[in-house]
Amino acid sequence: MVSIRNSAQSVEARILDAAAACILAYGVERTTLTEIARRARVSRPTIYRRWPDIRWVIAELLTLRIAGLLDAVPDAGAGREAMVARVVAVAQHLRGDEVVMSVIHNAPNIAITYITSRLGTSQQILVDALAEAIKAGQSEGSIRAGDAHQMAAMCLLITQSTIQSAQMVADLLDAEALDAELAHSLNGYLKP
């Protein structure tokens, strides 16, 4: 017998999977709750019971994808070089995530909120993870002294800017060069 909790998780997963499929098929701006509901095989009220509107569905989808990438790239231990390698790997995966990049490049009304106005849930997860890694690196001696959360926020800004603007500088920096320059920037910023 399937529990109600597992059933609810399954419905939410189907809705988010359907939202991702719609974003890839139609683009963010043309994705509708009606189409998400059809693909997920649920009613629109089922979606509205979980999220107030499509922006919240997309925000939840992005949070899960970004946090999932952080979990998928293992922590290689304490120290600046290990932390920077992980940040660069997560950034590389995010640049390759079609859904995330579609939102960044094709839905400026959604993306701009998280670029200029406020930290989203996924960004806060990343800042917290970076702050812990920075504290570990400070204890180990490979990261300079300073407020770990402030430094983590700056690392997020550097990395987020690199992800957002990678397409713009693709003729100057291919993916490998972009990763190397991001690592150099972060290492330089964090070095004691």
Results as ranks from 00 to 15, higher is better:
V100S: 00
G96C: 08
V100M: 00
L70F: 13
V103M: 06
D71C: 12
T116K: 00
D71L: 14
A107C: 05
A59L: 08
L61S: 05
D71N: 14
H93L: 14
N109D: 14
T116Y: 01
E98D: 13
L70A: 14
M101E: 02
S117L: 06
V87E: 01
H105P: 01
M101C: 02
L64M: 15
D71V: 12
A85D: 14
A76G: 07
A72Q: 15
A76Q: 07
V90F: 01
T113V: 15
D75C: 10
L62M: 15
V87M: 08
A76H: 02
L69T: 13
A78F: 09
G68W: 09
A107I: 05
V90Y: 00
P74H: 11
E81A: 12
R65T: 05
L70P: 05
A59H: 11
G77M: 09
I66R: 15
L69E: 15
L94P: 04
A76I: 02
R95W: 09
E81L: 12
V103T: 03
V90Q: 00
A78Y: 09
I115S: 00
V103Q: 02
G77V: 06
M101P: 01
A67F: 10
G77H: 07
L64T: 12
E60H: 08
A67S: 15
I112R: 08
V88S: 00
L94H: 06
I66G: 04
A67T: 15
P108R: 13
R86P: 02
H105K: 10
S102E: 13
L64D: 15
I66F: 13
G96P: 07
T113G: 07
E98H: 13
M83W: 04
G79K: 02
I115F: 03
L70M: 15
I58S: 10
E98Y: 07
I66D: 09
E98Q: 12
L94V: 11
G79A: 05
G79F: 00
S117V: 01
R95I: 05
A59W: 04
D71H: 14
I110D: 10
Q92V: 02
I58N: 12
L62F: 11
V90I: 10
A76C: 08
G77D: 06
E81W: 06
P108S: 11
R86Y: 04
